[in-house]
Structure formats: C-alpha cells, structure tokens
Computed example of a mutant assay.
Amino acid sequence: MPRESLPDLTAYDAVLFDLDGVLTPTADVHMHAWKTMFEELFLAWGIEPPYVESDYFDYLDGKKRYDGVASLLRSRDVELPWGDPSDPPEADTVCGIGNRKNEVFARVLRAEGIAPYPGSVALLDKLDAAGVPVAVVSSSKNAEEVLTVAGLRERIPVLMDGVVAERESLPSKPAPDVFVVAARMVGVDPARSAAVEDAHSGVQSASAGGFGLVVGVDRGAGADALIALGADVVVQDLAEFV
C-alpha cells in the first residue's frame, strides 16, 4: 500500500502491538527450541522417526504449547498423561515436556539473542515522539524475556502476555479479551485505538475487540487472508508507517 494512503498512527489514542512477528522475529527462536528439545527427547527415548522441520508446521505451529506436544507425540504413537501446567520440566507428562520446551527456548534466546525489526523500532520511536501510548498484547509466556533480550522492555509500559492472561483467566486469541483488557490497562477506548497483528487469530481478536484500526503485518499469513479476517490495512513492514 502506498505510504501516503496509510492512516496516521499518531492520530490514535494508543497503539497495541502483538510481539512475535510484529516487533521481533521470534518464530525462528521457537522453531529452534522445539527442534532442540524434541531431538534430545527422541534420542533419549529411542523414538522414531527422528524430528524433522516439517513436524513444526504439521503439529506445533499455531497451537497452544501443550496441544502441540500431544499432537507431535501422537504422530510417533507415543501417549503420555496430560499432567498439570505446574509440572516441572523433567516430568514425563505432556505439560512437563511443554515446560521443558520453555526452558530450551529461554536457553536459545539467551545464547543467540534476538534483534527487533528495525522498521518496528522506527515506528515505536515515532509514536514515542508524538506521545502516543503503546502496549504489547502477546499470547506468549516468554514475552517479558523476549522484550528484555531485544532491548524493548523499558519502552513497553503495559504488557498483556500469556502469564497475565492465565492469571486473569482470559481466553486466548482469537477471543477479543486480551486486547480489550490491555486497552483498559492503558486507559484508552479500543474504538479510538489501533492494534497491530501478523497472525490470523490476532487480527480476529483485535477486530472482535472493536479497535478503531486493525493493522495486519504480512510476514507470510497472506494479505488477502488478513483483510478477510478483519484487518483494515496490511503492510509488509511497519517501516511503511514511518
């Protein structure tokens, strides 16, 4: 979309951003963490066939962490007790293995680091200069650490992540609750605010929440699909708003 035809985000009362795929390229770290964890697990348990890259897209991508674990193990004819989200990472349960992946994710993140998208940082700079409040609305329980490692945590005064959503018993995207409650935390009306998302479920969530503008960032989800699900405009990179 030509830059001159894009809406001015500084005209909104606040801008709420998803994290993975919008501010940071975190998907690569998640893929690496899943691969590392399952390769170690399959080797230790003698599970065949070995983990391959397509397993991520077939069984893990877009699913809640524990559902993804159960789905992938089932593909290898392995059934485990579900357990409880409080299970320690060494527990041989679906939840335990899911929590093990979280530890590997943190290990990979600390070892390799992560840099935010330059265009996203430039937009944050522009909004900050204009005095427009921002927030992050992420399903991830790792959002706090991702923002810290990426050097963005101090720039995000309001964080609605998987930890807060679980504590408040909020349903995950595509339900609108996390975006609506985050707007309330910022102190703004969704109808006068903008939301920025790259995922189908996130666009649906912001649209259902009644946001005045829903921006889709096409990192592979498809512009037509994002529009169909409720995005008002779609860009390839947030630098287009700067």
Rank of each mutant, 00 (worst) to 15 (best):
Arg153Gly: 08
Leu159Ala: 14
Asp13Gly: 00
Leu23Met: 00
Thr36Cys: 09
Ala199Lys: 05
Ala111Ile: 02
Val108Thr: 02
Ser201Gly: 05
Tyr117Thr: 09
Val181Arg: 15
Leu6Met: 07
Asp224Ser: 14
Leu213Pro: 09
Ala150Gly: 11
Pro25Cys: 12
Glu53Cys: 06
Leu23Ala: 00
Ser172Lys: 11
Arg100Glu: 06
Asp128Pro: 06
Pro25Ala: 05
Ser169Tyr: 04
Leu159Asp: 10
Thr26Pro: 03
Ala129Trp: 07
Met31Ser: 06
Leu213Thr: 08
Leu19Ile: 11
Lys35Phe: 07
Ser140Val: 09
Ala111Gln: 10
Ala239Val: 00
Lys126Phe: 00
Val186His: 12
Pro116Arg: 09
Ser86Trp: 05
Ala14Lys: 08
Arg219His: 05
Gln204Lys: 15
Tyr56Ala: 12
Ser172Asp: 01
Gly113Phe: 07
Val134Glu: 03
Ala208Leu: 09
Val215Gly: 10
Arg192Thr: 15
Pro7Thr: 10
Leu127Arg: 06
Tyr117Ile: 08
Val214Glu: 08
Val146Phe: 13
Thr93Leu: 13
Pro176Ala: 04
Val29Pro: 12
Asp87Val: 10
Val94Ala: 07
Ala208Tyr: 10
Glu166Gln: 13
Pro171His: 02
Thr26Lys: 12
Leu124Asn: 11
Lys63Phe: 08
Met1Leu: 03
Met1Tyr: 01
Ser54Phe: 04
Leu41Trp: 02
Tyr51Ile: 08
Lys64Glu: 14
Leu124Arg: 13
Thr93His: 14
Ala221Cys: 07
Asp237Ile: 07
Leu80Gly: 02
Glu166Thr: 14
Trp82Met: 13
Arg153Pro: 05
Tyr117Met: 12
Asp218Thr: 03
Val22Met: 11
Asp189Thr: 08
Tyr66Gln: 12
His200Pro: 06
Ala165Cys: 03
Asp128Phe: 06
Asp161Gly: 10
His30Gly: 11
Tyr66Glu: 13
Ser75Ala: 00
Ala194Ile: 03
Val29His: 05
Pro133Arg: 05
Val134Phe: 05
Ala33Arg: 08
Ser54Pro: 03
Asp61Arg: 14
Glu40Ala: 15
Arg155Trp: 00
